[in-house]
Amino acid sequence: EVPFKVVAQFPYKSDYEDDLNFEKDQEIIVTSVEDAEWYFGEYQDSNGDVIEGIFPKSFVAVQG
């Protein structure tokens, strides 16, 4: 069931425009499960802007 919160276990950096880049310990709200390997989610950056994109499930852990 979406949405749910995950926390980055590792930093994720990608050159693909659709990917969500983040640092370790970033909290991310997952709004869609793309497939067995990928989530789609969002978070607010330090400027208060909402950043969204896809990212690999293996880089995050589900909270709770």
Score class of each variant (00 low, 15 high):
V62H: 12
E42G: 11
K57Y: 04
F59Q: 07
Y39H: 01
E34S: 11
D18A: 14
V2H: 06
A8Q: 00
G64V: 12
G53I: 04
S14F: 01
I54E: 04
K13F: 13
Y43Q: 00
V50Q: 08
D45P: 02
D15S: 11
F4T: 03
D15Q: 12
Y39G: 01
E34Y: 15
P56E: 05
W38Y: 12
A8N: 01
N47C: 09
E34T: 13
K13L: 09
A61M: 12
V33T: 07
V50S: 06
I51L: 14
N21T: 10
E52I: 10
G53L: 04
Y12K: 02
K24N: 04
E23P: 06
S14E: 02
F22G: 01
E52L: 08
S46H: 13
I54P: 05
W38I: 05
V62S: 08
E34G: 10
W38M: 09
E1G: 13
F59H: 15
P56I: 03
E37W: 12
Y12G: 01
N21Y: 12
E52R: 15
E27R: 05
S14N: 03
G53R: 01
A36W: 08
F22V: 03
I28E: 00
Y16W: 11
Q44W: 07
L20A: 02
V33G: 03
D19I: 08
T31V: 06
E37D: 13
F59N: 08
P11C: 11
G64I: 12
E42A: 09
I28K: 00
F22H: 00
I54K: 15
V62R: 10
S14A: 03
P3V: 05
D19P: 02
P56A: 02
E27H: 06
S32R: 15
G64L: 09
T31D: 02
V30G: 01
N47I: 05
Y12L: 03
V62C: 12
V33E: 06
N47V: 06
K57V: 07
V30M: 02
D19L: 06
S58N: 09
F55E: 00
D18W: 15
V7P: 01
Y12H: 07
P11S: 11
Q9N: 08
F55T: 00
S32W: 10
F10K: 12
Q44P: 06
F22L: 01
S58E: 10
N21A: 08
F55H: 01
V2I: 11
N47F: 09
E17P: 15
F59L: 15
K57E: 05
I29P: 00
G53Y: 02
G64A: 12
F59D: 05
G48R: 03
Q9W: 08
W38R: 10
E27V: 15
I54A: 11
F4R: 04
E17W: 09
D49A: 13
V30P: 01
E34L: 15
P11Y: 05
A61Y: 11
E42T: 12
Y39C: 04
G53T: 01
E37S: 08
V33W: 06
S58W: 10
T31S: 05
Q26G: 02
A61K: 14
Q63W: 10
P11A: 13
K5G: 05
G41I: 04
I54F: 15
Y39S: 00
G48A: 03
E23K: 06
S46Y: 09
S14Q: 03
F59P: 06
K24V: 10
I29C: 15
Y16Q: 11
G41Q: 01
V33R: 06
P56T: 04
P56F: 04
E23S: 07
D45L: 12
D49L: 14
V7S: 04
G41A: 03
E34Q: 14
S46P: 10
I51H: 15
E1V: 12
I28L: 05
V62T: 10
I51Y: 14
Y43H: 01
W38A: 03
A8H: 01
P11W: 05
F10L: 11
F40M: 08
F10D: 05
F10Q: 11
G41K: 01
F10T: 06
D25Y: 11
E37V: 10
E42S: 13
K5M: 12
A61F: 09
D19H: 15
E52D: 09
Y39L: 05
D19R: 15
D25F: 10
K13R: 12
V50N: 07
I29L: 13
Y43C: 05
V62E: 10
V2Y: 06
S46V: 13
P56L: 04
D19Y: 14
E1K: 12
I28N: 00
I51D: 01
N21H: 11
V7D: 01
G53H: 02
